[in-house]
């Protein structure tokens, strides 16, 4: 049976089945080979960014332009009717009458689900507060499959702030469909929440928790780094104690597997030393570039053009 994602909003990565996720990745692969495809042919996509974002907004807008579409919208709420107190439902209803698809980033948790319930056109969630960021997850999965040749049976090491990092939560949920083994490396204060670990348990998969990064590097297929933020620690001394344990340096990759790749959702601050950048195992900038193909694939699939 052929898979169709026409008119299917993407709010949470769990809205799509593993087969549907793979279908999007297949389409993204096609866009990577041939990014300029005039499928939108002048159609209008709304890009509503209720809070600032660099990578996500630019990669969506690049994706739309590569597809021959036009973008309307805003990159912050200043000067919009939102500041006059307009409800989210009203803003979305209005924009849905102008555009064929809405891409939305909003700092409020659950705003994307609400938008999808009031909108007559599909919504792509470009991040709703601390809740979900499914297109980041899609490009992470694309990057993993591209570098490893498969999503199945991989050893995934997640490093840093596993408590608050929404990209980590979505990735764990998605990779739990593909028989992954997880190494969870974090300070005690920032361990993966129990509710997210439940996805691993529900899939009867293995995970191990570590507080040191170095020991897990030699058997990792993917090292997914995230930022450990000072403000997450109630006691600044605790931050000082752990801050250097989660910095990846080039020398630490000496015993990594040949297929091992380092990913990071970016922006990075100091958790990956710049001396890693020239190592062929560093993949974070290509990962960000893959975001354009993954977003082209989603837009084309949801509009029924692929």
């Amino acid at each position: 049976m052929s898979i169709s994602l026409k008119n299917r909003s993407l709010i949470s990565i769990s809205d799509y089945t593993p087969e549907e996720i793979c279908h999007v990745l297949d389409i993204a692969e096609d866009f990577e080979k041939n990014p300029h495809q005039n499928l939108l042919n002048g159609r209008i996509i709304a890009s509503l960014f209720f809070e600032p974002s660099t990578r996500t907004r630019l990669s969506f807008e690049t994706a739309i332009q590569l597809l021959g579409g036009n973008v309307i919208g805003f990159s912050s709420t200043s000067g919009t009717s939102v500041q006059k107190g307009e409800s989210l439902a009203d803003t979305i209803t209005m924009v849905a009458s102008y555009a064929d698809l809405i891409v939305m980033r909003n700092p409020i948790d659950g705003s994307a689900r609400l938008a999808s319930e009031v909108s007559k056109v599909p919504i792509i969630n470009a991040g709703d507060g601390s809740n979900q960021h499914p297109t980041q997850c899609m490009l992470d999965l694309y990057s993993i499959r591209k570098t490893q040749g498969t999503l199945e049976n991989l050893e995934i090491t997640l490093v840093g702030d596993l408590k608050y990092g929404r990209t980590v939560h979505s990735l764990v949920e998605a990779m739990s469909h593909f028989n992954a083994k997880f190494n969870l490396v974090s300070p005690v204060e920032l361990k993966l929440p129990r509710t997210v670990k439940q996805h691993i348990k529900d899939a009867h998969l293995e995970y191990e928790q570590f507080t040191e990064l170095e020991e897990v590097i030699p058997h990792s297929d993917i090292i997914y780094m995230t930022r450990v933020q000072r403000e997450r620690f109630p006691d600044p001394l605790e931050y000082e104690k752990v801050k250097n344990s989660y910095v990846l340096r080039n020398a630490m990759l000496a015993n990594a597997k040949p297929n091992c790749r380092v990913l990071h959702p970016l922006p990075r601050v100091n958790e990956i030393h710049v001396d890693v950048d020239s190592n062929p195992k560093a993949y974070y900038f290509q990962q960000a570039q893959n975001g354009v193909y993954a977003r082209q694939a989603l837009i084309a699939a949801i509009l029924g053009l692929k």
């Binding site: 409800s87 989210l88 439902a89 700092p107 409020i108 948790d109 659950g110 705003s111 689900r113 609400l114 507060g129 601390s130």
Partner: peptide, 13 residues
Amino acid sequence: FNPNCVTNKEHDI
């Protein structure tokens, strides 16, 4: 319970 949930931020949801 989440103060940042849309049901606590927007009216009448």
